[in-house]
């Protein structure tokens, strides 16, 4: 297997109307599989959220990470994604989330640390064009002088790598801290007292509407790597809708770390 470059691939963009949290989980599963099987060209998907959610990582304990009562009180759905990493607090309009579905050849021979930075180099460039000096903070964060901007996670499956990232555009830190249990141990080597202070969202850093930030990111990706506008195939959407209603809605998947 020879390592490939971005320009060796015919990148596709998917950016649709808002979708439910469980459907987003399922689409990541299905599209990674499709790219790995060679039925879909490598793809960048920009997410739009239909409703608020907490997205926990593949190996996180629901009980340890989420205050279920607070989540219910605020009408926040809890879902579990296919990749490792930490919990994300999502409110529509407050985050910018995207997935990259790439053949594993694109990161062939790279260390994990290098692969994370490599797959987000275009984002750092887009942020620089918006006047934000940002860099990769190993293992899996994008950060700036003001604080953390984004968290990334990767998973490798059947010849494909899924790399997805949630960026803070705006944040209701008080609500986030009600819903997420962020332990002292987790913050022990971050050098800060407050989880809220660790995040510096894009809205305050750019002064731009969320759509303008997304527009800049897409334009930068297109310029650097090439990008054609695409949409979900009917069979991809049907498969994801089924998985969203079964696996990704099931207590066995959401509640248990297995």
């Amino acid at each position: 297997m020879i390592r490939t470059n971005w320009r060796d691939h015919d990148w596709q963009l998917i950016h649709t109307a808002p979708q439910s949290p469980t459907l987003h989980m399922a689409l990541d599963d299905v599209l990674t599989h499709e790219v790995g099987a060679g039925r879909r060209a490598p793809t960048l998907r920009i997410w739009e959220w239909a409703s608020p959610a907490v997205v926990i990582g593949r190996f996180q304990s629901l009980r340890n990470e989420v205050d279920g009562e607070a989540a219910r009180r605020h009408g926040i759905e809890v879902v579990r994604r296919v990749s490792g990493g930490g919990a994300m607090f999502i409110e529509p309009g407050n985050t910018i989330t995207y997935s990259i579905y790439a053949p594993q050849t694109l990161v062939k021979g790279l260390s994990f640390q290098e692969a994370y930075a490599f797959l987000d180099a275009w984002v750092l460039e887009a942020l620089a064009e918006l006047g934000i000096k940002a860099w990769y903070q190993p293992l899996n964060d994008i950060t700036s002088e003001g604080g953390k901007i984004a968290g990334a996670a990767q998973v490798h499956r059947g010849g494909a790598v899924l790399h997805h990232v949630t960026m803070a555009y705006d944040i209701d830190a008080a609500k986030m801290l009600e819903v997420l249990r962020i332990g002292r141990e987790k913050l022990s080597d971050k050098g800060t007292q407050s989880a809220a202070k660790r995040v510096d969202p894009l809205r305050s850093q750019t002064g731009l509407p969320r759509e303008a930030v997304i527009g800049r990111m897409v334009a930068t990706f297109r310029r650097l790597h090439g990008l054609s506008d695409d949409s979900l195939r009917a069979d991809e959407l049907a498969q994801a809708a089924t998985l969203a209603q079964t696996k990704f809605s099931s207590p066995a998947w959401i509640d248990d770390v297995t």
């Binding site: 990582g57 593949r58 190996f59 996180q60 304990s61 340890n64 296919v82 990749s83 490792g84 990493g85 930490g86 919990a87 994990f112 293992l139 899996n140 996670a153 990767q154 998973v155 490798h156 987790k186 770390v257 297995t258």
Partner: peptide
């Protein structure tokens, strides 16, 4: 015994 956390582990069956 139950291991959990925000780490990355593949394949995911390794947790079990």
């Amino acid at each position: 015994v139950q291991l959990s956390g925000d780490f990355f582990l593949e394949p995911d069956s390794t947790l079990a």
